[in-house]
């Protein structure tokens, strides 16, 4: 991956440490993570609970600050950007899909999709909007409110909202965590097709090997570090690594306790 030039990198984390709390209550969530996420690719970040995968995504997306190290999206260094800068970055260059509570209940599907554009005061690209709507298959649901949509439909609206701004990166945090398998497949299917057909960059955090199998590349996190990765994964290969990771971590846990698990300033 270091072979990729800067042009090909949508987001990068360099020696990123993230520490919560201090003293006795100190928790180290990320320990010197280095990762580059390729432009136009669908990357999944995987790992067991507490591995730091969500923290890594939050840091990459500018939702959380890092304790040490650097994050960049495109050419922009996130470290040192104030709230206004981060807000603008999120608004203009990043898209989000969350596990739940993804939509504003008082807005229609169309209004929810166009929300980031409205906030930015930008006019939607009519053709692209239609493309996105077609892709997510919501053309006949646009004037519905979230309460009138099924879970899967709501999540597709959320996807459309993330895609409609043509962001540099879409961050998806367990996007299928609340969905049944059929809805999951639909959502993941067009996330992948938006990458392959429109060149969208997507970074997805998941703990579901089946979901990770839709990605081009899977990065495995364990105990705050990148422990493995996989290109062109299948559910089986992902599952294998996950199983291996579990045993590996159990072994490591003993070693780490004695070595560099100490506090990071």
């Amino acid at each position: 991956m270091s072979a990729l030039g800067n042009d090909g990198v949508a987001a990068r984390a360099s020696d990123v440490w993230k520490v919560y709390g201090s003293g006795e209550a100190q928790v180290v969530a990320l320990r010197g993570v280095n990762v580059e996420l390729a432009r136009g690719a669908f990357t999944a970040i995987m790992g067991p609970s507490g591995s730091g995968k969500s923290t890594l995504m939050h840091c990459l997306a500018g939702l959380d600050s890092v304790t040490r190290g650097e994050i960049s999206i495109g050419d922009t260094q996130l470290t040192g950007l104030g709230d206004a800068g981060l807000t603008k970055l999120r608004r203009d260059r990043v898209g989000f899909i969350f596990q739940q509570f993804n939509l504003l209940p008082m807005l229609t599907a169309r209004e929810n999709i166009l929300l980031p554009l409205s906030i930015a005061g930008r006019k939607p690209d009519r053709g692209w909007f239609d493309t996105v709507i077609d892709t997510v298959g919501l053309a006949d649901r646009l004037s519905h409110r979230p309460s009138q949509l099924s879970g899967g439909q709501q999540q597709r609206v959320a996807c459309a909202r993330a895609l409609v701004t043509k962001p540099e990166v879409v961050f998806a945090d367990e996007p299928t965590g609340n969905l049944d398998s059929r809805s999951s497949a639909e959502v993941l299917g067009f996330l992948r097709s938006s990458v392959h057909e429109s060149g969208q960059t997507i970074v997805m955090v998941t703990h579901d090997p089946a979901a990770a199998a839709y990605a081009d590349r899977v990065v495995f996190l364990g105990d705050g570090q990148i422990v493995d990765e996989l290109t062109d994964p299948t559910a089986e290969t992902v599952l294998d690594i996950m199983k291996r990771l579990d045993t590996l971590l159990l072994v490591n846990a003993g070693e780490l306790a004695g070595s560099d698990a100490g506090p990071v300033r």
Partner: peptide
């Protein structure tokens, strides 16, 4: 949560 979401998708303070 809603306010958090709005902030996430770019609503300034």
């Amino acid at each position: 949560r809603e306010i958090g979401l709005l902030r996430a998708v770019g609503l300034g303070r």
